[in-house]
């Protein structure tokens, strides 16, 4: 009895260690041994979507030309993967979106305006991680209409929708109907209630097709979507900050912060605008490479 227990235990240990071996080998960050690189080198990472990789490429190139040794580790994954990697030292620097990052760190966060979000984010950051000055560029939810609709009803801000929303159909992801940052908040904060709502996808092809072709007149679209330029869409301004600000902000291992890094990344953040992101997303959509698009932008803004 005891013998068989012991034997089972040995088997179990052997199996576990066998299972653990490939897992360790497959872990790109080597959880067992954090490896802060030689002192000055900054490892730039990015999330697994094009815009994040593009901004990370811009950071890396700007730092490189400022004389900072840089390594890149692009396309890592979701926040759930890359934030732990940032904390354990596998990567040092990432572009982030202030509002989403704040919600990731604090599920109950209520800050909404750019400054409030930045302040709350600073307070919520884990130890050893800092943010630099946020850029004005945002990739946020917006209430978006076509240029034709904007002209017809004289729309510039969400508030302008109030008298005409009863004639318009809105569209977006199904959760828009019941979310504060959606139909609920539009009514509560702006007094805007649309004639009806069409549940489509999350600022994806269905929503854009319905908006451009007139099945809906207003839709939730991300502010840096390439269609903003390609299909002449107008993102209505959000003066009462219904949607949490999503400013692009460098998030960095505190140990790697130094005056040159601050100066370089602040220059990038100061020059970057939402319109730039739209244009660069259009270029990426036309199969231009990250390197090319990043290089062109840096050149145009004279950041060396």
């Amino acid at each position: 009895m005891t013998k068989s227990l012991l034997r089972n235990a040995v088997y179990a240990c052997a199996t576990l260690s066998l299972m653990a071996l490939p897992a360790l080998a497959a872990d790109p960050f080597g959880t067992a041994a954090p490896k802060r690189q030689s002192k000055g080198t900054i490892i730039v990472g990015s999330a697994n979507f094009p815009e994040s990789q593009l901004i990370a490429t811009i950071y890396a190139k700007a730092l490189k030309s400022a004389g900072v040794p840089v390594e890149t580790h692009m396309n890592i994954g979701s926040r759930e993967v890359y934030i732990p990697a940032l904390i354990d030292g596998s990567i040092d620097l990432l572009p982030e979106y202030s509002g989403s990052m704040l919600t990731y760190l604090d599920k109950n966060a209520t800050a909404s305006s750019p400054t409030d979000v930045a302040t709350a984010l600073k307070a919520a950051l884990p130890k050893g991680v800092s943010i630099l000055t946020p850029s004005a560029a945002q990739d946020a939810d917006t209430v978006t209409v076509t240029q034709a609709t904007a002209t017809k009803y004289h729309l510039a801000s969400i508030a302008d929708l109030k008298p005409v929303a009863g004639d318009l159909v809105s569209g977006g992801a199904p959760e828009w109907q019941t979310r504060e940052e959606g139909a609920v908040g539009l009514t509560r904060i702006y007094g805007v209630t649309f004639k009806s709502f069409k549940p489509l996808d999350e600022a994806g092809p269905l929503t854009l097709s319905a908006l451009v072709n007139g099945q809906v007149q207003a839709a939730d679209v991300y502010s840096t979507d390439p269609s903003m330029a390609a299909d002449h869409l107008v993102a209505l301004s959000d003066p009462k900050s219904l949607f949490p600000a999503q400013n692009v902000v460098p998030i960095i291992a505190t140990a790697k912060v130094n005056p040159i890094v601050i100066k370089t990344l602040n220059a990038v953040s100061a020059a970057l605008t939402t319109d730039d992101l739209i244009k660069m997303n259009v270029a990426l959509g036309n199969h231009e490479s990250f390197n090319e698009v990043a290089k062109d932008w840096l050149k145009a803004h004279n950041i060396k």
Binding site: A173, P174, E175, Q177, T178, P199
Partner: peptide
């Protein structure tokens, strides 16, 4: 119900 339930 299925799609809204999932989204919400």
């Amino acid at each position: 119900l299925i799609i809204d339930g999932l989204a919400q």
